[in-house]
C-alpha cells in the first residue's frame, strides 16, 4: 500500500522508532516481496545509473529538434571561473541539473525521478552532496528512500505528471522530494524533512506545463535547475528551523486542487504559454 499522507510515514516512524527512510524501505519490501538487501541493492543500482548518466554527459550532443545541447558545458566552464557570485556547491548543482536534462533530450539513458522531464533535479542535488560533503553511498541511498516516500505521497494525493497536474507535478514534485532528501542528509528530524517538502512545494504551486513543440526541452531542461536550487534553499530554511505556516499535507492537497484547475491548454498539450509564442512556432517545424 502506498502512503497517502506524509503524516502516515511520520507517524509510523515515531511509533516504531525507526527512521523515515526505513518506513519507506519496509513498505517497499512488503509490496514487492523483497528482502531489505534486495530492495537496497535495487536502489543503489538506480543511484549508480544516475551517476553514470551524469558522467556520460556529452557536451557536443544536440537534440533532434536542435533546441537543446551544450548548456551544461557552459556551466561547467563557468564553475572554473575564480570570481563567481555563487558558491561551489550550488554552481555544481546547477551544472548537473542542466546536464541531465540535456542528456534526456538527447536520447541518453537517465533515471525518471519522478518523470523523464524532471530527471535532473534529484541526481543534481544528491550526486553533488556525495561529492562535496564526502558522505557514503549508503547514506545517499537512504536519502533516495526519503525522496521516494515523498514521491509516493505526491503520486497518491496529488499528481506526478505534467499532463495531469501541470509542471508543479513534475519539477515541483521532484523539488519537494529532493528537499526532503537533503533535509534528511543534513540531520533533520521527521518534522524538518516534511517542512522542507512543504516549503519547496509552495514555491512551485501553479507551475504550468507548456513545452515548445510538445518536446521535453523548453522550458523543461532549465527548469530542472530551478527545481534543484529550490530544493536546497527550502531544505536550508527547514534546517534553520523555519516551518511552513500551512502544514505539509495541506500543501499537497492544495497542489492537487490547483492541478485540477490548471486548464488543459497548459497541461502538456502545447496549446498555450511558451509553446505558442512567435519564436516557438517558428522554431519547431511539424
Amino acid at each position: 500500500m502506498s502512503f497517502k499522507m506524509l503524516s502516515d510515514i511520520v507517524n509510523e516512524s515515531n511509533q516504531k522508532q525507526i527512521a523515515f527512510w526505513e518506513v519507506v524501505l519496509n513498505d517497499d519490501c512488503k509490496n514487492e516481496g523483497l528482502s531489505k538487501d534486495e530492495s537496497m541493492k535495487r536502489m543503489s543500482d538506480i543511484y549508480l545509473a544516475m551517476k553514470e548518466a551524469d558522467l556520460n554527459y556529452d557536451p557536443n550532443a544536440l537534440s533532434s529538434s536542435g533546441m537543446t545541447g551544450g548548456d551544461g558545458a557552459l556551466l561547467e566552464k563557468h564553475r572554473m571561473q575564480p570570481n563567481r557570485l555563487i558558491g561551489d556547491f550550488l554552481t555544481k548543482v546547477m551544472e548537473k541539473a542542466v546536464k541531465m536534462g540535456e542528456s534526456n533530450a538527447c536520447m541518453k539513458r537517465i533515471v525518471a525521478a519522478p518523470t523523464a522531464g524532471s530527471c535532473g533535479v534529484i541526481p543534481a542535488v544528491l550526486i553533488t552532496y556525495e561529492e562535496e560533503r564526502k558522505v557514503s553511498v549508503n547514506k545517499i541511498v537512504e536519502a533516495l528512500y526519503v525522496a521516494g516516500g515523498i514521491g509516493e505521497v505526491l503520486a497518491e494525493s496529488a499528481e506526478i505528471s505534467g499532463a495531469k497536474g501541470g509542471c508543479q507535478a513534475e519539477i515541483g514534485s521532484a523539488s519537494g522530494m529532493a528537499a526532503g532528501a537533503i533535509a534528511y542528509l543534513e540531520g533533520g528530524d521527521n518534522e524538518t524533512i516534511v517542512h522542507a517538502v512543504a516549503l519547496a512545494l509552495k514555491n512551485m504551486l501553479g507551475l504550468t506545463c507548456d513545452p515548445v513543440g510538445g518536446l521535453v526541452e523548453v522550458p523543461c531542461v532549465k527548469r530542472n535547475v530551478s527545481g534543484a536550487v529550490n530544493a536546497i534553499i527550502s531544505s536550508q530554511m527547514a534546517i534553520a528551523g523555519i516551518r511552513s505556516r500551512i502544514p505539509p499535507d495541506e500543501v499537497i492537497d492544495s497542489m492537487r486542487r490547483i492541478g485540477n484547475l490548471i486548464p488543459e491548454c497548459l497541461k502538456e498539450t502545447s496549446k498555450e504559454g511558451l509553446a505558442i509564442t512567435a519564436t516557438a512556432l517558428k522554431t519547431v517545424v511539424h
Binding site: 536502489m43 542528456s103 536520447m107 541518453k108 537517465i110 533515471v111 519522478p114 521535453v216 526541452e217
Partner: peptide
C-alpha cells in the same frame, strides 16, 4: 517513482 532507468526524452 524513483525510476525506471530509461533512454529519454519521454516516458
Amino acid at each position: 517513482i524513483i525510476g525506471p532507468i530509461m533512454v529519454g526524452p519521454s516516458s
